[in-house]
């Protein structure tokens, strides 16, 4: 489904914005649009009936989010906002799924800088605002499959990683892209834990062709909101055909490299987590099956167990792995 396509409405039928706006203010004056007045005029997915916080984001980002169009979608029911922002792994804020929501609300993500380095024409430290000035934000509704066998359908806001890579102009030596999350134990209680087996900062990587694939995105928002801190504000990766742990959060460093980078979960348990981490129902995790997943939110008597699809249903990426033994390169 592509919402951004041209419509069949004649341009003469479209109410000019000024007229529309003045009509609105008239109705508003009459008190007729009490509820509707607060609704934005765009068609982005918005949270419905939530008591949880909203995340309008910094002023410089808001207009970009508001002008986003939906460019990717799936014909599946969205996971509600409340589940998306309260249930996820972000070990920097704790091990339980609720920890990120409960502990990240004070996480300061604006202003934010991203260091670009390695095999690239324009290395340097960039303000996120400046990086984003050159890209358009889109809404993309993707399936999200965690390696722990639960999944969601999430309306992300962001842009294709490829568009940023093109702007940065990597050299011909750049075969891989490495990403690093912020390391800041003062703000991230999970990094202070003495019992953690993770070597901070969190890091991830993609092969160049994976990074350039049009499905790969950098996300700055979700559900019409700026990215909530617990979901990896202000900038995170989303690679919908890979297990969720590849989609690294709160990125502070992007390095173009010639050699394959390490990634945190492979460093932690290499017999269980690989570099590729493509969603694959035929290759089980050593401790659990990957053949099925629980689509969240599940309820007790309706666990919503569904079959996991190869590449999470994004079969168009299959050519990237032609000839590779995916049980070896898990």
């Amino acid at each position: 489904m592509l919402i951004g396509k041209p419509s069949n409405i004649l341009s003469s039928e479209i109410t000019p914005e000024s007229v529309y706006l003045s009509r609105r203010s008239l109705l508003k004056g009459l008190g007729l649009v009490a509820g509707a007045a607060s609704l934005p005029a765009y068609a982005l997915t918005q949270p419905k009936g939530t008591d949880l916080p909203l995340y309008p984001g910094p002023d410089w980002l808001r207009p970009k989010l508001d002008s986003a169009k939906t460019t990717w979608s799936v014909d599946e029911e969205l996971t509600p906002y409340d589940s998306v922002i309260t249930y996820n792994n972000f070990y920097e804020f704790g091990l339980n799924k609720e920890d990120p929501y409960e502990r990240a609300q004070g996480f300061n993500t604006d202003p934010w800088q991203v260091e670009i380095l390695g095999e690239v024409e324009r290395p340097g430290i960039y303000n996120l605002e400046d990086l984003l000035a050159k890209v358009d934000i889109e809404e993309r509704i993707y399936r999200f499959r965690c390696v722990e066998a639960w999944s969601m359908v999430i309306p992300w806001l962001g842009f294709s990683l490829a568009s940023l890579i093109k702007l940065l102009n990597p050299t011909s030596n750049a075969k891989y892209v490495e990403f690093v999350t912020l390391e800041d134990p003062e703000q991230m209680p999970g990094q202070r834990s003495l019992f953690s087996t993770i070597d901070w900062p969190y890091r991830e990587g993609l092969r160049m062709d994976e990074a350039m694939h049009p499905l790969t995105m950098l996300a700055v928002g979700v559900y019409g909101q700026a990215m909530p801190p617990q979901n990896g504000a202000p900038l995170r990766l989303v690679v919908p055909w890979k297990y969720g742990f590849k989609s690294i959060k709160s990125i502070v460093q992007i390095r173009f490299r010639e050699s394959m980078p390490q990634n945190t979960w492979r460093l932690t348990a290499s017999q269980e987590y690989g570099f590729y981490a493509n969603v694959n129902p035929n290759v089980d995790h050593p401790r659990w099956s990957q053949a099925t997943e629980r689509r969240l939110p599940s309820s007790l008597f309706n666990p919503r167990i569904i079959e996991t699809q190869m590449f999470n249903g994004y079969e168009e990426v299959a050519p990237l792995y032609a000839g590779m033994d995916l049980s070896k390169w898990y």
């Binding site: 996971t79 409340d82 589940s83 309260t86 249930y87 799924k97 609720e98 639960w150 629980r294 969240l296 939110p297 599940s298 309820s299 007790l300 666990p303």
Partner: peptide, 15 residues
Amino acid sequence: LAYTNQLGADPAKAL
């Protein structure tokens, strides 16, 4: 908690 939907998005796992 289960009855009042306070077990989170994945109540089965929590329980």
